[in-house]
Structure formats: C-alpha cells, structure tokens
Computed example of a mutant assay.
Amino acid sequence: MELSGTILAGEDYEPVDGRVIVEDGEITAIEEAETASTDIICPAFVNAHTHIGDSIAKEAGRGLSLEELVAPPGGLKHRLLADASREELVESMERSLQFMESGGTTAFLEFREGGVEGVEALLDAAGSRDIEPVVFGREETEVIEVADGYGASGAHDSDFSEERRAAERADKPFAIHAGEVDQHDINPALDLDPNFLVHMVHAEEIHLERVQDSDTPVVVCPRSNLVTDAGLPPVEKLLERTTVALGTDNVMLNSPSMFREMEFTAKLFDVSAPEVLRMATAAGAEIAGLNCGVIEPGREARLVVFDGDSDNLCDNHDPVRSVVRRAGVDDVKNVILP
C-alpha cells in the first residue's frame, strides 16, 4: 500500500511531501517526493483515558456534583449501569467505539466498571471492530485475570495496596485517578508506584517533583475536568516533567472525540500543536505499550488520512496546527487500522 500527500512524519510531526509505504500492516518507508495529492497523513489517535461503559448514560445528571455523578458505589453512573441490561450496555458501547474509530482513534485505555463481567462486556462490544481496547478492570482483584491491567478509582476511596500487588504479580500495569477533586490523594497514589496517573488537576510542586523523579506518565482530560468543575490540570508544568497523554474520560459527560480534546487543549494551554498531537498519539501509545503514534519505518501502520482540500482544511498554512485545532470527523478520508 502507498499513501501519498503531506506526511506528519517522525516524532516531531514535521510535514513532508511524499509517500508512506505500508507492507503487512507495517510502515516500511517514507519517501520524499513531489505529489499532487492534497491528503494529510497523520498517525492514528490513542485515547488514553475513557469510561466507554458509561455510553448508556450520555448527558445524565445535569446539576450534580462530581461525587454525585461518578463516586462508587452510589453515584448516578453506577446506578444507571446497574439498571441497564448487558445487551443494552454492549450495544451502547459498540456505538461509541464505532464513532471513535470513524474519527481515527486506533486504541483506547479504558477504566471499566463491573468487575470481570464488565470487562467481558466491553471486549464483546469491541470484538467486531478494528479499534483496540486496552482495558483496566476495576472493583474485585480477580478482574486482573481477564483485563490488561487494574484501574483504581482513587486513594480517597480505598487503599488499593492489594490490587497493586496483584497487578505486579500478574505483570500487568496499575493505574489510578489522582488529584481530580483535591491534592490529598496524590501522594498516596504515587506511593503505590503506578504505571501512570489520571487527571492531576490539583498537583502542587511537591507532586510534580515526585512525578518527575519517578518518571510517572500522566493522562489529562481537560474537557471533563472543566465540565465537572474540578479545575484544569497544569498541562505545561506536567509536560516539562513527564510524558503527558490526552483522554476524553467519561462518555456520560463528553463525546469520545480526540478532535475536540485536541482543539480544547491547544486553545486553552500554552502548548504547541506538535506537542498536542504527540499527547493524542505517541504519548498514549507509549503508555499502552503500543508500537504506533509515529509515522516512521518499523511502526505499525495505524494512520488517519485527511482530505486536505475539504472545505474545512483547504488553504491551510500549517498541516499540524490544522489537524490539531480544526480537523473533525468530516475531514477524515480514510482510517488505516490493523
């Protein structure tokens, strides 16, 4: 397979006119050449934090606090999940995954409620699609046997030491929410030596130093944090210290659109377009242990091809900035996934 156009190549996403050569699902070469194609070839996105299980409850809970919405076990989302049938949950998740895939998301890191049954339901929903789930199970420790790792709700809710040890015994990653409501659960979360943290809205200098010293990646979800009135993460300070990836968080509150998350992040924080694109691609892939997110030989060919002559993207002077700040599903010409 050959894809021609403007290639957002390498770890710096430098625009290069030419061809991407793909063989057996792997990028084998990038050839610089003159081309008449106006396509923009970009790495596919990795959504680094989702709650796709909440697809059954879109826009529920208006006016409720974050705790009333999502805190286990009595938050609204948990009640709605308990009331829905398995068939309803799977169908709703399938629709969200279809939407994500059509927008160029190649993989997602899911914190999945419902224990073993919850993980199995999500895997059923993803079974007919090309998008790859990386599932962090929750609740009972046994969920680690069927999940890719364990995703803890936060040190406010429990100690999670046993879950951390179980993940280590299984040689699987352990991740945890931290600093979403306040700063008090960040040090206890870091004490668990997680593979990555989620949110870090209320991180203070001492926490940032610990993140840097331990080289702990962080996933930020700015739209979700704003919607729930949690605040905004210190994205610029985090980027100075560690790997930072983007997630869309709870489908109950936000569409799982990496386009919206990138645009919001690029326009709200003092970060460059290539930095934001890395947060939406290579950083999430790195956290998930996937060989994608960068267009270079030896990487998996997980790619999004944009119509650079669409009404939205035509006459653009900066392809990277255009993808990050203005592109959308309607501009997607093709999605190449394994």
Rank of each mutant, 00 (worst) to 15 (best):
residue 203 A to C: 06
residue 84 A to N: 10
residue 87 E to V: 13
residue 54 D to H: 12
residue 294 V to E: 07
residue 60 A to D: 01
residue 196 F to P: 02
residue 236 E to I: 11
residue 22 V to M: 01
residue 113 E to C: 01
residue 52 I to T: 14
residue 233 P to C: 00
residue 18 G to C: 03
residue 234 P to E: 10
residue 259 F to H: 12
residue 22 V to D: 00
residue 90 V to K: 13
residue 59 E to V: 13
residue 324 V to Q: 06
residue 284 G to A: 11
residue 33 A to Y: 05
residue 253 L to K: 10
residue 248 T to N: 02
residue 228 T to L: 15
residue 293 G to Q: 01
residue 173 P to W: 05
residue 252 M to L: 06
residue 83 D to E: 15
residue 175 A to S: 11
residue 329 V to R: 13
residue 101 E to D: 02
residue 311 D to G: 15
residue 316 N to Y: 09
residue 105 T to H: 00
residue 216 T to M: 00
residue 59 E to Y: 14
residue 231 G to T: 13
residue 175 A to L: 06
residue 184 H to G: 10
residue 68 E to V: 08
residue 90 V to R: 13
residue 181 V to T: 08
residue 264 F to H: 14
residue 213 D to P: 11
residue 140 E to A: 15
residue 144 I to V: 13
residue 285 A to C: 05
residue 200 M to E: 07
residue 150 Y to T: 08
residue 138 R to M: 01
residue 20 V to F: 04
residue 296 E to T: 10
residue 164 R to I: 07
residue 325 R to I: 07
residue 334 N to S: 15
residue 22 V to F: 00
residue 88 E to G: 12
residue 233 P to G: 02
residue 151 G to R: 07
residue 118 G to V: 03
residue 326 R to T: 14
residue 53 G to I: 06
residue 77 K to V: 02
residue 307 D to L: 10
residue 162 E to I: 02
residue 315 D to R: 08
residue 278 R to W: 08
residue 261 E to H: 14
residue 45 F to K: 07
residue 197 L to P: 10
residue 314 C to M: 15
residue 164 R to L: 04
residue 207 H to L: 07
residue 72 P to D: 06
residue 110 E to L: 11
residue 215 D to C: 03
residue 178 A to N: 10
residue 21 I to M: 09
residue 43 P to K: 08
residue 16 V to E: 09
residue 226 L to S: 15
residue 134 V to Y: 11
residue 75 G to Y: 04
residue 5 G to A: 04
residue 167 A to N: 04
residue 156 H to E: 00
residue 307 D to H: 12
residue 87 E to Q: 15
residue 33 A to D: 12
residue 82 A to Q: 04
residue 173 P to Y: 01
residue 43 P to H: 05
residue 271 V to G: 01
residue 266 A to N: 01
residue 133 P to I: 13
residue 223 R to H: 10
residue 105 T to F: 02
residue 211 V to R: 05
residue 270 D to M: 10
residue 146 V to D: 11
residue 282 A to M: 13
residue 135 V to I: 07
residue 285 A to L: 02
residue 234 P to N: 09
residue 313 L to T: 06
residue 69 L to M: 08
residue 124 D to I: 13
